[in-house]
Amino acid sequence: MKFVSMLPVVAVGGILLLAAKDFPAWGDPQSPASSSPVSSHFIGSTGVDTEVPNMVTAVLADYRGFDTMFETVVVFIAGIAVLAILGGAGKRRASKRVHEVEAEPDLIVTNTARLIVPVIQIFAFYVLAHGHVSPGGGFQGGVVMGASFILIGLSWDLETALARFSIQRCMAVAAGGIVIYGGIGLLSMFLGGEFLDYAELESILPVSREMARYHAMLGVEIGVGFTVTAIMFALYANLSTAGRLKGGL
């Protein structure tokens, strides 16, 4: 069985290694990916189109805004699906776990977490808000923010974290993030442009068309950050307790 499974693996690996000969060399500036007109256009005219210094953010939230929006929806759907799969389990099979121990949260751990959690959350806001000019953005900031809640859940217990950010609130915040994203897209549509054509927001923002795209990108990233924060914590809370939402690790 194991030996038979090696055959397709070796075959695929061999073919890919053969194909590697035709791939561009390491760091080749003339490689198809680097010399393609799309990437040259993104590098060359991001500054003119959007005035955003970080091209990755500009491509993510503006040029490929549709992709990112539905990616956020995918994250949201994953959170809902995990709730749906594990949600009913808690009531049916309560108090099934045998290896659970009742223990006070450790003093050193909780006090360290007490000190470090606000710093993590401020850093998350920095990563989120500074995503235009430095590496960062909605997904990264959202994950850091979600990690701060997971840290609370790890160092105290899950109830403490859920008292601050309950699952219902998680879902509301996650849905709110998508509403922010889609709302900005719809708003630009109602203002005369196309869906997610942020430049049309200039008529309600006191800035130029380019800066309207710049600021709309921040709004979109905030929506993404909301969704990712909530879903990351909801995933942790559900998966660590098999849907019972108490006890935890």
């Binding site: 990916a33 680097s34 393609s36 990437s39 993104f42 590098i43 091209m55 990755v56 491509v59 490929r64």
Partner: peptide, 8 residues
């Protein structure tokens, strides 16, 4: 500048 597209 490196290619932003693969990173995105």
């Amino acid at each position: 500048y490196a290619n932003p597209l693969p990173h995105v």
